[in-house]
Structures are given as C-alpha cells and as structure tokens.
Design a protein around this nucleic acid. Structure first.
Lengths: 245, 245
DNA sequence: CATCCACGTTGACGCAGATCAAAGCCCGGC
DNA sequence: GCCGGGCTTTGATCTGCGTCAACGTGGATG
C-alpha cells in the first residue's frame, strides 16, 4: 500500500481514469470500458505541484511516470555553467518522466509553470498491468515513440530553422495542442517566459521578443505580454514552408 | 511464416541472438540463457543493406524494429525545400525504427553509411514476447527511454553549444560507443561525410572542417580525411565544461 | 595509368542573431 | 496607492558561423 497522504492531503481528490475527461488524450486512450476500470487501480495517487516547484529533478530516483491532470510544466537540462536547455513544455494529458526509465534516475528537471496536479503512475505497476492489457502495452509504446518523434521535431527546429520559423512552429504547435484539449486554437495565454521560449528554441529572449513584435507588425498575431491571438494561421504556416535564401 | 528468402538469399546467415557477440549491447541485454533462447524464435530474419541504400523511408509502413548486426547507419528527416536534419548515427547493437511505433509509419529515413546487416524484429511479435518475458519488456522500455535521453543530449548540442563544443561532444560520444564495442577509443574511421556531421550538429560542412583543423592545430586530434586519432581526451572534455564568454 | 568526381580544405566577406544597454510595463506586497 | 523587482521591449553594436569561391585530394573506374 502506498502512503497516499504523503502526496495528497485531500483524499476526495481521488478520481478514476474512467471518469477523467482527459482519458482520450492520456494513457487510457483507446482502452475498453473494462480495461479502463483496471487502470483505476493502477493510478490511485495524485500530487499537487505549485507553480515554480519541481515535480522531479535530474538525479532523483525514478519510480513513477506522471500524467498531467491540470496545469503546465517544462522539462529542462542544465549545464554546470548555468546554461539551460528546455527540452519540452507539457500540458494536460501528457506524460512526464519517460526519461528516467533507462537509467532508473531522472535525467532532467520537471518544473510546474502554473499550479498543477499530476496522476502518479508507479512504473513497476504499469509494466505489470501492460503485461495483462495488450492495448495498454501498445498504447504506452506509442506514447514513448511519439515522444521520440517529437524530439526529432525539436532537432529540426534547432538544427535547420531560422528564428522566425522556429517561433512560428512553436505557436502552431501550441495552438494545435490547445485545440485538442477543447480550447481556442487562436487565442491563449503563454505559461512560459520569453527566456524559457528562447531556451526551448535555441534563441535569446531578445530574439524571441523581436520575432513576436515582427509577427505583430505583419498582422500574423496580436501579442500583449503572455496573451497571444493568432490572426493568420496560414501566414504562419507559410513562414515554415517557404524558404527564402 | 515469414518469407525469409525475400530478405536474405543466404540462409546460413541465420544466427541466433544467443550466439551473437552483440547480445550484451543489444536487445537481449540482461536476459537469462533461457529467455535468450526464446528471442532466437523472435528474431529469425536478417537483411542486408548496401551502402547508401535505405533500410526504410519516412512514410513507409511500420512493421518491425531493426537491430544492427554489422555496419553503420544514419537517420534523417528532410524538409520539402531540401534541408536535411540528421537525427542520429547508429552502430552495431543499436536499434532502428522506434520512431514508427507511434503512427505506424516511419517518420524518418534510415540509410546505411556502409554495407550493413540488420536483424528484423517484427514488432507485434516483440510485444507478444515481452508480455511473457518481463526482463525483455523492461529492457525494451529502457532502450526507448535511452533514445529519448539521447535526443535530449542532441537538443543541448543544438540549442546551447558553440561549434567546437558540438564537435568535441560528437567525437567523445563516438569514442565512447566504439569503446563499448571493443574498438579503440582513440582511433577510428568516420563513416559519415563532413556534410552529414554538420547536418547532425546544426553546422555547415565548412564549419565542421574548420573545427577539425583547429583541433588538430591545438594538438587535440589528428585528422586525415575520415581517419581520426584522438590525442588529448581530457582536452576535448575540457572544451565542453569550460565556458568562455 | 589517366581521368573524374565527390569530398574536403581554406580564405574573404556578410549577416542573423547575440550581446550590451536602457527604458517601459505589470503585478504583488506593504 | 505606492514601491520594487521580474519580465519585456527596443535600439546599437558585435561576432560566430554561414556563404561564396577557389583549389586540393584520394578513391573509383575503365
């Protein structure tokens, strides 16, 4: 038995996967009613993480994956000299902690960018359940594979795109993920700072800021602080496909 | 039954995992004698891929993973305008194809950089076996997780390192992987061109060439075409940890 | 053995984005 | 309602790497 109270002081927060409105985005995706019921036994603990607090740090022992129930995270890796590479931004329904399986230690930091709540998925249990539930096993493999493909996308951003292409790709990606969660595709609030965006995109915060301003001048977006309104989706997409020079 | 002859005209090439000298680097890592015997049933087909030929292409249907038996590969993603991002270089014992699980289509190209041979691992079979063999399941998860961590390392290269740091990290990484395979840590032949190294590191081939020349001037390496000799490992490592500016 | 051609090296110059600097904005705390 | 500090914007200047160009080199081919 797991000491639920160590994580969570409000036991009634317990809410089964089968009742969760994220179930079609998250780990239970594609499971039958019955199989989802089994997941309710796997995921029994939730954990709050306040804004700017760590869910885990590089070097921490790995025991569980985390499904984001509400909130917004970043993952990053730090060099000794203080340089930071943000490796991703994660939102509701997405899985954190996959980096820890290989070495049994986390290899990056996961930080909440707003007050958040995660479902704790003890990894040994997940492996046991997925030996019985083929659909769960298969879906978990897909989740990991998609993370690899996502990483390849970031490599393309960083390796071959210019500053404005990177930012356009970033905005379109956020838009698409917000849409999948039932929010507006064209209007949202950024949870991260210009510095964090820059660190993700391999740019300095001034460059990010200038690119935002340029997009606004060109009528592609409205931006006021963290509030973003996309005015011209196809214009942004065109930025990605047309290669000047 | 799988039509072995479609892949392989020399049936005696069949060689079981349990006999393979890569078994401690590859998928069977950490399995018991008995479990490894079961893998011999899983991996029954091998496939030759000649230099500069594709093992698979982006868009191809995904059916199997591939363990590299001999040879050397690159994986890359292409943009419509011809820009190429090399996402990795793979050598004996490493697994290709993980990108395809999520969408059931491959999302990158895998190209042999020298005449190579791979073991075909039908993915549906792998999932079946790993439901029975816990150690296989767990090791497979580790392989995927390590791929994610490796990708984070590439993001750091691309996002925050300068040209010479990237190349130093690249050489040290190759050195370490050759060592693990029983080859010299300090002397090896590159299988890829300057252009491919550049594409991987987010640099132009001229920059790669200049960095090689600079390392040689500084007595860190000897480089002659594709032949590399590392003279000063700690000097290369120092390049990574010390941040000028 | 001569030829060819992809690959590699080196130099000169230019530019995208970094760096440095200064000022504005917004929100939280008192 | 005022103050302070973190975040953002914008301008001026600098620089690492890209771009362009010319030449070198070595392995493959007939």
């Amino acid at each position: 038995m797991r000491a639920k109270s160590a994580y969570l002081s409000v036991p009634q927060l317990r809410e089964a996967c089968s009742q969760c409105n994220l179930r079609e985005l998250c780990l239970p995706m594609g499971l039958s009613e019955h199989e989802m019921g089994q997941l309710d036994e796997l995921v029994t603990v939730r954990k709050r993480v306040l804004r700017s607090h760590h869910l885990y740090r590089g070097g921490d022992g790995f025991e569980a994956l985390y499904a984001i129930k509400t909130g917004f995270f970043k993952t990053d890796v730090l060099l000794e000299d203080g340089r930071e590479q943000v490796t991703g931004f994660q939102m509701a329904g997405e899985i954190l902690g996959l980096d820890g399986i290989g070495t049994e230690k986390h290899t990056c930091n996961a930080v909440a960018l707003e007050d958040s709540e995660v479902c704790v998925i003890p990894f040994a249990d997940l492996e046991n359940y997925s030996r019985e539930i083929g659909a769960l096993q298969h879906h978990f493999h897909k989740v990991m594979s998609r993370e690899i493909v996502r990483d390849h996308g970031v490599m393309m951003l960083l390796g071959i795109m210019r500053a404005e292409e990177r930012l356009a790709a970033f905005l379109l990606n956020l838009s698409q993920r917000f849409t999948a969660r039932g929010y507006s595709p064209t209007e949202f609030n950024l949870r991260m700072t210009r510095n964090e965006i820059g660190s993700y995109l391999g740019l300095k915060l001034e460059t990010v800021s200038r690119a935002f301003s340029r997009f606004q001048e060109e009528g592609l977006i409205n931006v006021h602080q963290k509030h973003i309104q996309i005015l011209d989706v196809t214009g942004l997409k065109r930025l990605l496909s047309e290669r000047r020079v």
